[in-house]
Amino acid sequence: MFEAKLTEGLILKKIVESIKDIVTDVNIDISPSGISLQAMDSSHVALVSLNLSMDGFEHYRADTNMVLGVSIANLAKVMKLADNNDQITLQADQEATHLKIIFENPKTERTTEFNLNLITIDSEHLAIPETEYSSVVTINSGEFSKICKELFSLSETVQITTNTDYVQFSVEGEVGSGQVRLGHNDSEKKEDQTILEVSESVQQQFAIRYLNMFNKASTLSSFTRLCLHQEQPLVVEFKIDNLGVLKYFLAPKISD
């Protein structure tokens, strides 16, 4: 038996919106301590990893580990039934064939229920090695979204360079070349801060198209954390207050 109730259902709605363009069918892993999922996009360029702790739920019960295979496209359709102020409850029996999703609005007394059919997904579960990232950049999520969006109109690829003084996003395309450079900024206004933690400089290239997809999660968190290490995938991390973390891994491009 699994049951989890999230008071701020909007968070779940936003999570589904933030991953639905990247992954299609996903195994959701339920454990007594929380909910997690890991999935790659169809072209194996990016990987999504979500971890939600039971502590963030108003009510949480999972007697055993369970795997719920879900079509994210269909889950997104069901989530459209939820009002932004709804509480969301997820329920599944042992050996379940469907996931029951309940939306409740205590103010308007409206309740919506949907039984989403589960599917069997044969997906690879990958082990992500512990990595000590040599460059970690914490940046306002709205600002990072805007930089990626605007640079994408100029080039498909961005080169990210870090050093102790700045992080630089540079592009080169038919239009020309240029860069956005952000220095360490620990101003009093927290939302303006850019925090650089660089032990070793990194220079890598990435497909901006994917960064734009990841940035849909910027509504979940005021800050985006970029973790970089030469020869390793970029991690774009969004912390979800009191609940968990949504991470996207993106393989770097290499010059032939």
């Binding site: 790659m40 194996h44 360029v45 990016a46 990987l47 690879e124 579960h125 990958l126 082990a127 992500i128 090695p129 690829t157 290239q205 497909a207 390793q232 995938p233 891994f249 993106l250 393989a251 770097p252 491009k253 290499i254 010059s255 032939d256």
Partner: peptide, 14 residues
């Protein structure tokens, strides 16, 4: 020319 690497190259199969 720039090639896109496969994310699976970086992780281990469980």
């Amino acid at each position: 020319l720039i090639g896109q690497q496969d994310i699976k190259n970086f992780f281990l199969k469980k």
